[in-house]
Computed example of a mutant assay.
Amino acid sequence: MAVVEPKVVCCCLLLLTGAVSQGPRVDYRDPACAVRGSTLTILCSFTPQSVVEDGKRVLAEIVRVVWCQNHQICHLTTPSVYDSELRYARVNDPRYRYLGDKKGNCTLQITGVQRGDNATFRFRMEAKETKNHFTGRGVTVRVSDGAQMEVHSSTDGQFKRGEAVTLNCTTKCTFHQLEVTWLRDGHALKHTGPSLHLAALTAMDSGNYTCRLKNNVGSLSKAFSVLVEAEEEGSVQVSLIVGVVSAVLMLLCFVILVLVIIRQKNQSAVRGEAGPKYNQAEGAQQQVEDVTYAHIQFRASGSQARPVEVEDDSIIYISVVARG
């Protein structure tokens, strides 16, 4: 007869136990820190108790989800910040918004964080079977006034002319939907977002930058120095000279172009008025120049004909006399 060792039996029991039952679970991101007046999102996920239905192991169906504050089990009429079954909580506080479902997401969002939110929040899920109710261990929320605001740069601290840089106003606690006031050398800027973008840096952007939450002077950050090197005097003069010369050349070209256009218009006008007179004179002159008379005479002489040329101004007579 074979003898089964106790260790083997123990391992088999553990495997069977794990296959029969899968315990419920809730996971948070802990700890959570929020700035007063901001919006905080508590990321949360859960896994219901596994049960056997029709011979198959499935997850229990969740019929109620609850978020409560500073309570161990969030049971029954315990004051809650959110309850999917309003029979226990007639009105849910609108500052607490449930972003999850009844399948596995239990994320809770808190808007307008207050000092009273400095507490431990717990999530509870309830299934059809009472034995499958479960409350998680909870997540602790710490509320801050934002006194630890800091300014960080998107670059390594080298600020060159023409480049862009972004300054970020941050704190150890997360914050959203808050108005941030930016200051340069103590003077308020128009921008109110958590990030300040400076494009095409110039020497005018140099200064000490600070940020704070609006209406919260105590949250003012330490100064962050931005130093943009000014252009050298020689390069400035060269740039100025080049600019002046370019402007003068452009102006000169423009003047010449205008004069050429005016001259062409004047010539066209003169030709249009005196055109017919010039044409008649030129035609007459051409006829005079082209007139050539040839006169040939033959005499009854046996001598050879010889041409006789008679010139009279522009009229040419050619006479050929033949003598017999």
Rank of each mutant, 00 (worst) to 15 (best):
C68N: 14
C68Q: 06
Q69F: 04
Q69P: 01
Q69A: 05
N70W: 08
N70G: 04
I73Q: 15
I73L: 13
C74D: 11
H75T: 12
H75D: 10
L76W: 07
L76H: 13
P79V: 09
P79E: 11
S80I: 00
S80Y: 05
Y82L: 00
Y82W: 01
D83A: 09
D83K: 09
E85N: 15
E85D: 15
L86S: 09
Y88A: 03
Y88P: 01
Y88C: 09
Y88R: 12
R90M: 13
V91L: 06
V91D: 02
N92R: 07
D93V: 02
P94C: 10
R95C: 03
R95T: 04
R95G: 04
Y96M: 10
R97W: 09
Y98E: 00
G100N: 12
D101P: 12
D101K: 11
D101H: 05
G104N: 08
N105E: 04
C106I: 01
C106W: 00
C106D: 04
L108K: 06
L108N: 03
I110G: 05
I110C: 10
T111L: 13
T111W: 00
G112L: 01
V113G: 08
G116E: 08
N118D: 15
N118K: 02
A119N: 14
T120V: 15
T120Q: 12
F121W: 08
R122Y: 05
R124I: 04
M125G: 00
E126C: 05
A127T: 10
A127C: 03
K128F: 11
K128T: 10
E129Y: 00
T130F: 04
T130W: 15
K131Y: 01
N132V: 05
N132K: 09
H133I: 03
F134T: 09
F134V: 07
G136M: 09
R137N: 15
R137K: 13
G138K: 05
G138Q: 09
G138D: 04
G138C: 05
V139N: 11
V139M: 01
T140E: 06
V141K: 11
V141D: 00
V141C: 10
V141W: 00
R142H: 12
R142C: 07
V143D: 03
V143W: 03
V143F: 05
S144H: 12
D145L: 14
G146P: 05
M149D: 10
E150H: 04
V151M: 05
H152T: 12
S153V: 09
S153D: 08
S154H: 08
D156Q: 02
D156P: 00
D156M: 01
Q158V: 15
F159G: 02
R161Y: 06
E163F: 06
E163L: 00
A164D: 14
T166E: 07
C169M: 02
C169F: 00
C169D: 06
T170F: 14
K172H: 05
T174C: 04
T174S: 13
F175W: 03
F175G: 14
H176Q: 02
H176W: 08
Q177T: 12
L178Q: 13
E179L: 10
V180A: 06
V180D: 07
W182T: 08
W182E: 09
W182L: 14
W182Y: 01
L183I: 03
L183F: 15
H187I: 15
H187L: 12
A188I: 06
A188L: 03
L189R: 03
L189V: 10
K190W: 01
K190H: 13
H191S: 15
H191N: 01
T192C: 01
P194C: 04
S195M: 11
L196F: 09
H197I: 03
